[in-house]
Amino acid sequence: MSIRHALLALLSEGPKYGLQLRQEFEARTGEVWPLNVGQVYTTLQRLERDSLVESDGAEDGPQTQKGFRITGDGEAELAAWLLTPPDLSSPPRDELVIKVLIAAQLPGVDARQVAQAHRRYLVQLMQEWTRLKEYAADRDLGFGLAVDAELFRLDAVVRWLDAADGRIKRASLERLDADRAPLPKLPRKAVVRP
């Protein structure tokens, strides 16, 4: 979450005071992404230094009482940021994937049971988000969007677990078949040939 661009977005609605920015920032994102509000003020200072916002308060007066306004450069920065895809090209190192991968290769570990333990936890989390959505999503568009994003993210992980479960099941059935089948005959010609 970029605080810098979230503040620019708030200021693109119109000029605001420092305290007001802090409160709106908290109200709009805090419930889903709790953030360190001290960062709001340091970020405002940097935005001003980079000429993306202007303030009309006294040079060294308290940040809370300064009024802030977005500049033309700030508008351009915000528009460019909205359209720039975040880097999703390299897979993140995913702890859950690693756990299931290891479980699937350790003898004596039931990998499907491991998958189920994670599935239960994820579905429980999804139930909690869905309950919030049921009661609160219509009150606040931003909140509804953020909850959906979380639900789709968790859902994707559950679906991966389902696919993994099927793959592990098929692999273990094939292993059983292979154990029962007689050893393959050695290709004779290949052995005889000089």
């Binding site: 499907r112 189920q116 599935r119 239960r120 994820l122 579905v123 429980q124 999804m126 139930q127 909690e128 988000w129 869905t130 309950r131 049921e134 639900l151 789709f152 968790l154 859902d155 559950v158 679906r159 479960d165």
Partner: peptide, 25 residues
């Protein structure tokens, strides 16, 4: 899972058996 998450309780079925369920939320 998204549909299931609307429920008060989710029961997991695998190969015809109940293998697990979520705690009531």
């Amino acid at each position: 899972a998204q549909l299931a998450s609307w429920a008060d309780r989710v029961v997991f079925l695998r190969d015809g058996r109940v293998v697990d369920q979520t705690a009531p939320i």
